[in-house]
Amino acid sequence: MPHVTLTVNGKSHTAEVEGRTLLVELLRETLRLTGTHIGCDTSQCGACVVHVNGDSVKSCTTLALAADGASVTTIEGLAAADGTLHPMQEAFREYHALQCGFCTPGMVMSAIDLVQKNPQGLSEQEIREGLEGNLCRCTGYHNIVKAIAAAQDVMHGKRSEIARAAE
C-alpha cells in the first residue's frame, strides 16, 4: 500500500493508506484526531472541514494521498499550548454559536478561513453567504454569524478581545 507523509497540527506523520482512503479517514482512524467529523458524504455539510496548506478543505472529499507533503490543521490544532482558545473558538463560546457541537469543528475551521481571506472585514450578510458550505441543524446560524463578526475584529487586530454578547 502507498504511504503518505504529512504534517498535522505541526507534527509530522507517515501512514500507510489505501488509494481510496480519504483524508478524513486518515485523520480520524489512523491519527485518532476525531474532532473532524463526517456529516454527509456528499460535500454538502462541511463538518469535515480542515485547513490544508492554509486553505479550508472538505476532508471527506479529499484523498489522503492528495495531502502528501501538505501541512494540515484540524480543530485540535487551534488552541495554544497553554489552552488559550483561538479567538474564533472563544467567540463561538461567548455567543452560544454551538449546541450539539457536531458541526462546530468544521464551522470554526471554515469561519477562520473566511475571515483570514477577507481582511477588509465582512458584513453579517457576507458572513451568511460565506458559510454556504457548512450546515448546522441546531442553531439557526444566528449566533454563529454573530460569533464570526466578533472574532473577525480580534483576528484583524481591531479589538484586543472578543466583545461580550448582549445579555
Partner: peptide, 20 residues
Amino acid sequence: SVRRKEDFRFLQGKGNYTDD
C-alpha cells in the same frame, strides 16, 4: 446567561461522539 461548560470540549475537537 451562564456560558456553557460543555463548549470547551466541543470547540477543541474533544467531544466524545459514538463514532469517535
